[in-house]
């Protein structure tokens, strides 16, 4: 029951962040919102595993966290340098 309540709380957070992602004022708002959605998804996968009684798949949330970080770094690098890559 506790896990279900946590999942519900995550969905409320998700909704709030989604509003920020869609109606964000600046670009940085939206980047931060996309990053936060990634974090919420990572947490939700972990909690969902415990809720379904199969917490073996927590490794996936680690992969998600890494991918989320790489994506955010790529977006920010594009904004900083105007291009990706060396040339």
């Amino acid at each position: 029951m506790m896990f279900l309540a946590i999942l519900f709380a995550f969905s409320v957070c998700f909704l709030l962040i989604l509003i920020r992602l869609i109606a964000g004022k600046t670009t940085y708002d939206r980047i931060l919102a996309a990053n936060s959605i990634g974090t919420i998804v990572v947490l939700a996968i972990s909690i969902h595993g415990f809720y379904m009684g199969r917490p073996e798949f927590i490794d996936i949330s680690i992969v998600y966290a890494l991918i989320n970080f790489i994506g955010t770094v790529a977006v920010l690098k594009l904004f900083d340098k105007g291009k990706l890559g060396d040339k």
Partner: peptide, 29 residues
């Protein structure tokens, strides 16, 4: 692009909840 990345993250979360963990792995990466 940002929204599309978010979309596929949510899709991956749905694959996890449908018990297709390998598909979710591929979708996320």
């Amino acid at each position: 692009i940002l929204l599309a990345g978010t979309y596929s993250l949510v899709a991956a979360l749905m694959f996890v909840s449908l018990d297709a963990v390998d598909v979710a792995f591929t979708e996320a990466s």
